[in-house]
């Protein structure tokens, strides 16, 4: 139940963001010299009640966003913000879920192998990979891969979610087309994170291996694969679940850059365009939704933590 105060907190911090502006948002926009329509601006004023005392403003705003009413976009189409987000959400969600699955699927075996063969060539090369992976700017990697694999070798599509004439492809080609469009963005998005997780995995595996019950399992003469696979791995998974939960904001944040470079119609791209167009209702809506999503992901992480280790009561993740 700790989610509700946090949700409130999310709305509060988002609300404070509007008031960071030293000037008046309307002033900022109209100062740009771009012809704009004043109606949505007035609605924005009304929605946020910018002329009223702060607590009144906050309360009114809260009452509306509980019903997911984030107002209307400043763009001429003036669509409800929530509709715009709803269109974009599936892409970002799907990308992030796939990224997480891939990270777990790859980092666990890599981490375990590194740990069980500490100081081997494999271990050393993954360590190098970890540091380089951490340090590589993802946008840079993205552009390099687009040029190499997309333009020069022509192996993979450069951008977009699917071919513009996707609807007219046969079924299996449609699936392949989707997949091939996702390879580059997902590779780039997982590259840095993968490095980190395999390292965490290695670390926690090393610690578990040294513990008594693993040693005693070994002493009992159980085959190494059973010792590692059954006893050690399960315990070593605990920290990685936590880390995975904590990494959700990072992943979602990364989609800002990934979606912009690869022209993927997700929330990150929506956010960037909204910032360039100073479409404040969209910015605010995006912020609240994205933070709530992250909160939700953390809850899921907490729950799965409980599943892996029943000794831990749900909702009491080590917040120390």
């Amino acid at each position: 139940m700790f989610a509700i105060p946090l949700l409130l907190g999310i709305t509060f911090i988002s609300f404070m963001v509007i008031h960071l502006a030293p000037g008046d948002p309307v002033e900022i926009i109209s100062g740009e010299g771009i012809p704009i329509d004043l109606k949505p601006l007035q609605d924005f004023y009304k929605l946020y009640g910018l002329d009223q005392p702060l607590h009144v403003q906050y309360w009114n705003w809260l009452k509306r966003i509980v019903r997911l009413d984030f107002g209307q976009s400043f763009a001429p189409h003036g669509r409800p913000v929530i509709h715009m987000i709803r269109e974009r959400l599936p892409v970002t969600l799907a990308l992030n879920v796939i990224e997480m699955l891939i990270m777990v699927a790859l980092s666990v075996p890599v981490g375990v192998t590194s740990a069980t063969r500490q100081y081997s060539t494999f271990d050393k090369s993954t360590t190098v990979f970890v540091f380089v992976g951490f340090a590589t700017p993802d946008f840079w990697l993205a552009v390099m891969l687009q040029i190499l694999l997309g333009v020069h070798l022509g192996w993979l599509p450069i951008s977009g979610l699917r071919l513009p004439v996707w609807e007219y492809l046969p079924f299996w080609q449609q699936q392949w087309d989707f997949l091939s469009h996702l390879i580059l963005p997902i590779t780039v998005a997982t590259f840095g994170g993968l490095a980190g997780y395999s390292r965490y995995m290695r670390q926690s595996m090393l610690e578990v291996i040294r513990q008594d019950y693993v040693q005693s399992a070994r002493a009992k003469g159980l085959p190494e694969s059973v010792v590692i696979g059954k006893h050690a791995l399960r315990n070593a998974m605990l920290p990685i679940v936590t880390v995975l939960g904590l990494s959700v904001p990072g992943l979602i944040g990364g989609s800002v850059i990934i979606e912009t470079i690869f022209a993927l119609p997700g929330m990150g791209q929506l956010m960037v365009q909204a910032v360039f167009e100073r479409d404040y209702p969209v910015i605010m809506g995006n912020l609240v939704i994205v933070a709530s999503l992250t909160l939700f992901a953390n809850l899921v992480a907490d729950l799965s933590y409980g599943l892996i280790d029943p000794r831990i009561r749900v909702g009491r993740r080590g917040r120390a």
């Binding site: 687009q146 997309g150 951008s159 977009g160 004439v165 470079i261 022209a263 960037v272």
Partner: peptide
């Protein structure tokens, strides 16, 4: 028969797409 407008927010990406005939 058809016009498809692809929305590509980065001019650099659009140029790469052009070269790759996208």
């Amino acid at each position: 028969s058809r016009i498809v407008y692809r929305i590509i927010p980065s001019q650099a990406t659009t140029f790469l797409e052009l070269k790759a005939k996208g």
